[in-house]
């Protein structure tokens, strides 16, 4: 494992810790999109099916379990926790799942490395992850008052895939048979989706102002 990959994984892990902390400490999930969290749950379940079939490393297994458990915990809190669920911006979080899920499913059926159930679901998870942040970004645009932790959460989540791109470049140069065009294109799309957010996040940080996204 190279330094970019590790930095990417740690950024991803940190984003989830920030989100868990925010919700748990403030007893509020204001500004957080349940749709995005549920899409991530689908992404992790589809991608990590190999937990049952293929052991890669202890690190790999532990991280996968952390991502699954933390995402389902957040969904449970937002849906069922008696204090937290009333803070969910239900009326604002209106993005439709099917607009993201269906195209990704069709694309995974058409464009994959191998036409098997496991491989198609894995590819589907790669495509879906690329766009799963969209409901969250739409919700942030509608939220006038974005708190710091929510801003940091989205920033860390966006940074993680950008670091993965560096990891892919590194692996491409150092590993003889590392060719993952579908993943690379998806990762680039995923990072591009954040560029607007990154711009306003860095601007607000430099000017020491509260983050807000123009509608």
């Amino acid at each position: 494992m190279n330094v970019f990959r590790l930095a990417g994984d740690m950024t991803h892990l940190l984003s989830i810790i920030v989100l868990l902390l925010k919700i748990n400490a403030t007893r509020s999930c204001r500004g957080i999109s349940l749709k995005t969290q549920e899409l991530y749950a689908v992404v992790f379940v589809c991608r990590y099916l190999d937990l049952f079939t293929n052991f890669i490393s202890l690190y790999n297994t532990v991280m996968k379990i952390i991502f699954l458990v933390s995402t389902f915990t957040i969904i449970y809190w937002m849906r069922f926790h008696k204090v937290i669920r009333v803070t969910y911006d239900r009326e604002q979080d209106t993005f439709r799942y099917q607009f993201l899920v269906l195209p990704c499913l069709v694309l995974a059926l058409l464009l994959n490395n191998e036409f098997t159930a496991m491989e198609v679901l894995w590819t589907f998870s790669i495509y879906l992850e690329a766009v799963a942040i969209l409901p969250q970004l739409v919700l942030l645009q509608r939220t006038n008052n974005i708190d710091n932790l929510t801003g940091n959460y989205v920033f860390l989540l966006g940074s993680y895939r950008a670091l993965y791109i560096l990891n892919w470049v590194y692996r491409f140069m150092t590993e003889k048979h590392y060719r993952q065009y579908l993943v690379w294109i998806s990762g680039i799309v995923q990072t591009i989706i954040y560029i607007d957010f990154f711009y306003y996040y860095i601007k607000s940080w430099r000017n020491n102002e509260k983050l807000s996204l123009p509608a």
Partner: peptide
């Protein structure tokens, strides 16, 4: 040697 599947990533 086979092509790396990338499935060792998260």
């Amino acid at each position: 040697e086979e092509e790396s599947s990338g499935h060792d990533e998260l």
